[in-house]
């Protein structure tokens, strides 16, 4: 039951991404290209997603725990640090070059297009290298 629901949640996300335009690099880059072929559609994606999540989370958090787990796993940090800012800045540079973000690319894999496979392979390589660098950094600091 739990796994069926998880699959359906993934599917809702995947369909949402696919119809929203977030899986389409041409559309994503046009959202940012205010000086050129501007397409403001993606503002509606983020707007819709944030409003629904804002309201839905408030309903969910009235419960003491999620249905299938012992507790909500939420980030608790509130400080701003260099990895957060530098990492986010770097993410934006990559997004601007490739036109895919992780949440856009993963559902797009389902179209079977080789471009998406290439992007996701490079994305995974980046994640693995960053994790290794993080480990080395923590070892050097301790």
């Amino acid at each position: 039951m739990k796994l069926v629901l998880l699959y359906l949640i993934g599917l809702i996300f995947g369909v949402g991404i696919a119809i929203s335009g977030m899986a389409n690099p041409a559309k994503v880059l046009n959202f940012f290209d205010v000086a050129g072929t501007w397409d403001p559609s993606l503002a509606f994606v983020m707007g819709g997603a944030v409003v629904v999540t804002f309201v839905g989370y408030r309903i969910v958090f009235r419960h003491s725990a999620p249905r299938f787990a012992s507790s909500f796993q939420l980030p608790t940090r509130r400080d701003l640090d260099v990895p957060l800012l530098g990492g986010s800045a770097l993410f934006g540079i990559g997004w601007g070059i490739a036109g895919f973000c992780p949440g856009g690319a993963l559902p797009a894999l389902g179209t079977g297009q080789m471009d998406v496979v290439v992007f996701v392979a490079a994305l995974i390589a980046g994640i693995v290298v960053a994790k290794m660098l993080g480990k080395i950094g923590r070892r050097a600091a301790s």
């Binding site: 739990k2 809702i12 369909v15 335009g21 994606v45 707007g47 944030v50 969910v60 787990a69």
Partner: peptide, 22 residues
Amino acid sequence: QSLAGGVLIGLSAVLLMGLMGR
């Protein structure tokens, strides 16, 4: 279409939190 996609993305986020706490 983009708004509908955004609503579905939000719905999936709410369901994942409500069911799995993630």
